[in-house]
Design a protein around this nucleic acid. Sequence first.
DNA 1: AAGATCACG
DNA 2: GACGTACGTGATCTTC
Length: 943
Amino acid sequence: MTDSAQPLRRVVLVDGSGFIFRAFHALPPMSSPDGIPVNAVYGFCTMLMKLREDTRPDHMAVIFDTKGKTFRNDFYPAYKAHRPPPPEELIPQFGLIRDAVRAFNLPSIELEGFEADDLIATYARQAEAQGAHVIIVSSDKDLMQLVTDRVEMFDAMKNRTIRAAEVMEKFGVAPNKVIDVQALAGDAVDNVPGVPGIGVKTAAQLIDEYGDLDSLLERAGEIKQPKRREKLIENADLARISRDLVTLKTDVPVTHPVDDFDLLEPDPDVLLAFIATHGFKSLAAKVKAKYSGTVDANGLTEAGTGVNDVSVTKAQYELVQDEERLKHWIAQADYEGTLAVDTETTSLNAHQAKLVGISISIKPGEACYIPLGHGLGDDDVAPVATGAAQGGFDFDSEPKEAAPAKDIPKQIPLKRAIELLKPLLEDRGILKVGQNIKYDKIIFARYGIDVAPIDDTMVLSYVLDGTSHGHGMDELADLHLGYKTIKFADVAGSGKKQITFDQVPLDKALDYAAEDADITLRLHRILKPRIAQEHMASVYETLDRPLVPVLAKMEGIGVKIDADILRNLSSDFATRMAVLEKTIHEMAGEPFNLGSPKQLGEILFEKMSLTGGKKTKTGAWQTGADVLEGLAAQGHDLPARILDWRQLSKLKSTYTDALATHINPKTGRVHTSYGQTNVNTGRLSSNEPNLQNIPIRSEEGRKIRTAFIADKGCKLISADYSQIELRLLAHVAEIDALRTAFKNGEDIHASTASKVFGVPIEGMDPMVRRKAKAINFGIIYGISAFGLANQLGIPQKEAKAFIEAYFEIYPGIRDYMERAKDFAKTHGMVRTLFGRKIYINGINDKNGMRRSFGERAAINAPIQGGAADIIKRAMIAVPDALTDAGLKTRMLLQVHDELIFEAPDDEAERAVKVIRDVMENAAHLTVPLIADAGIGNSWADAH
DNA sequence: AAGATCACG
DNA sequence: GACGTACGTGATCTTC
């Protein structure tokens, strides 16, 4: 890469993963202002500060483990297999500690498949070979084998240097014999077997006597003690495997040589923003003293530090058309550690879009655009069966050489650009920022790149501001930067004349695309610090950020739909609609458009003079289902037939016809898109197509679910939370009677009915249970007597009495409601259990109706939002749990309280166990969480 | 582009 | 005392 600016003399390698665990256990619990635990992060920051002072390195890096399997598991699966999961309070700190490294402007290094120890070993030897002195900041005994004349360790917590003498003390041998001793003694914690019955003491003695492990095993027969001799002979292979396990790899294919780790000064503003906003006050003072940061009394960075300087100079936007320039940009991005990235494609649909270009920004105002698919002609994308799953891309069929050469601008071949960008975009130490980066992740995944780690300005904006405003880039740029972006329509036109991006001339494409990346980076610099300042780190770091890759994966996989079943249903519905239409026209005495509420209203209430008609606020007759049901109950046939027709019409147009058009020809599956920033309460939404409102309540509608099928050799699993919102209500409102009922596994509606109406559960009238169920739901929605009366078709007075009785049975509900309303009135928002802010519109409106609306929303939001948080936690944890269990089951869909999976036939049962376990433990409340699950060949079957 | 309707949790 | 109301979405169709 880049030449080292400084000679390599003194290298500090920090074992980040080791440190975080020790700091966590050594330091008392600390919370950042928003309540997430930060003791390990604090310890880490003070350590880094001190280390820079004390060790005065010229090169420095922090190295981390990656989660998941390493090469050691390939030859010894049990290696580190029984590690308990990290403590709950430590989990959010893993991400923050990486942020801390970046804030200190240090390289953060990790590599999948290798432990931090192997990377440290590789770098230590690299540096040593160049004659440098190396300090490994760790107290891990597994690293002691690396100690030499030039390599020492430093225990930052005990302030103790570890050299050959200290290693001798620990292992009884010189550092170069440590491996042999470990191979014999083994390690219970890491599941390194060693030789049974031999501990460190004996091992050291043996190695001392025989020289090394191989000689010892060879001459094991000479050992005098019979027990020891037998054990050694018997377990020679175990000792050799153990040696392989404990031997650190010194030739890891690292992406950055040690020369790249020049020590850089941190940007005081960035560092102070990080430190101050996590509440590290004393540390902030130290940093301020050392660097001249512009920090005001509140610990917030002042404006005018360049962040809001939005004079975008196009001169710094570069069109990258050759490999050399691309390599230059990659090296720069590598150096910065953070980049904004944006893809330009031929379609808003990420599952069929063709990549046209990539823009990257590494500093505000500095961005490039890399055109890759301009002027290459129309959609000659990969042919259908590429063999690549998930609509994968066939590079070899692209570009189509037949296109006239003169129209094709100079561009780096797509395949080559992908090859060059892949290490950068997958580098765990480099943060990739995107605006709606889920889209770009799906695109890149189709070209074989797994973009990580990520930040998303759209999600940041959502977590911070809820749905008080939109989160589109144009809107955010205007709002936060006062900057008007170039609109897509400005470069591609609009309406019928709109062209796809591959046809946009390069100069215009550059202006537009580079600006997108530039603005994204600028927005990130404004929004990211606010996360900590406004105490939203927990929500962002543990819920919404980790959810992004999960959703991208689910969308990429999609769900299989049987088009034949849909076609048959469509034609069945069409026939029956035609019959109904004829009948209705005859009954009406004239033909009219059944789909027109306006015409229907006139027929019903004017021509036929039916009574009970009401008008909407726009003066049209109401013809909703409730009105028609009322008329039908009076014995009128026409409205009843209309209801039948409407049901079929809805099913046909919205489902059986429409779903088929969403089947992706390349994958044969339907790929929805989840909206992560659309719903005020924190729920997801689903669109194009919406797979969260597939019919189930009616017999006819349910048939549509038979078309959602499992892939060949697979089953579908549906797992849903039982009564999650009521359980959450019982928890947050602290309703003992309700909590007890859930703990005892009672039928909650029957239990409520029994208490409210004073009847035994045994032999209960179903109508009574139905009433209780309606009240239970009503409570969640912010009940009113009117609403309940309407729902149950009973007088308002009666409904009011029910509600009063309910409040008597469950005292505390009323308190909860009042608390929620008061909180919303004071703060303009309410919070979920996990700290998500939900802004409540109209809560202080002087219009009574709008205010009541806000009040009901304030009651509902913590419950609906809390349930959404819980299932998000489950969604983040389930895929890893399945992988850890060695299963191939994939998560496909989420429907608010339900998750759908596709599992190979022979593992479905095992997958269900894992899924339920994760879902039920996604949160620990004062009521149990229960997830029910079913297995079937179709969604209808599995439910 | 808005409103009505209706599918889901 | 009368308003009007269950909470949260997205898709389709008609009408303007």
